[in-house]
């Protein structure tokens, strides 16, 4: 949603540092987030609780196999140490913060699309799981969480013996 006209184009021949475009970009991003938060809250209530209320939250894929549940989350630019993954009962919570690196924070933003901030998402798992054996692996900005099912919730086929002989 863009509410303010973007007039940040500048002449390539001038490299003045007090160009007002960067402040405008920041202001515009903040305005966009404000409106998205407001309208997301008012009209997107179905998704409430799944990160719709925060400015930014990672996207998730959840797959179920016979033995476990696999969750993939896109977390580009997040230090693995800033990720907090917890499983309580049947609820998986992924929390963390996408930090603007110190070197990019106060500089002249020519163009700004990436979003930063802290997030918390909780997902209800479809079956009881073994919370002791959850593993999480971070690679190339994607975190892969593997949650084995509780052994008692894995269907076990009982062979039927024939009694008549």
């Amino acid at each position: 949603m863009s509410l303010l006209p973007w007039k940040g184009k500048r002449n390539a021949d001038t490299w003045d540092d007090d160009w007002p475009g960067s402040q405008m970009t920041r202001f515009r991003t903040e305005m966009d987030q404000l409106f998205e938060n407001f309208f997301g809250r008012a009209f997107g209530a179905v998704e409430a609780g799944y990160g719709a209320l925060t400015a930014w939250a990672p996207t998730l894929d959840v797959t179920e196999t016979e033995s476990g549940v696999t969750v993939r989350a896109e977390v580009p630019g997040i230090d693995p140490g800033d990720l907090e993954i917890t499983v309580v009962g049947r609820t998986l919570t992924l929390a963390g913060e996408k930090k603007e690196t110190a070197e990019t924070k106060d500089e002249n933003h020519f163009h700004s699309e990436r979003r930063f901030g802290s997030f918390r998402r909780s997902v209800e798992l479809p079956v009881p799981v073994n919370t002791e054996k959850v593993t999480a692996e971070h690679k190339n900005g994607v975190v892969l969480i593997q949650i084995p099912k509780d052994p008692t919730s894995i269907p076990k086929r009982i062979p039927v013996k024939s009694a008549d002989k």
């Binding site: 977390v75 020519f110 163009h111 700004s112 699309e113 190339n140 994607v142």
Partner: peptide
């Protein structure tokens, strides 16, 4: 990909979020 472009005195820095790609 979403990008940020930052101007520095001697260069432009482009940061692009591209999760799931290997270098």
């Amino acid at each position: 990909p979403d990008v940020d472009i930052i101007e520095r005195p001697d260069e432009l820095t482009v940061l692009a979020d591209m999760p799931g790609v290997s270098a």
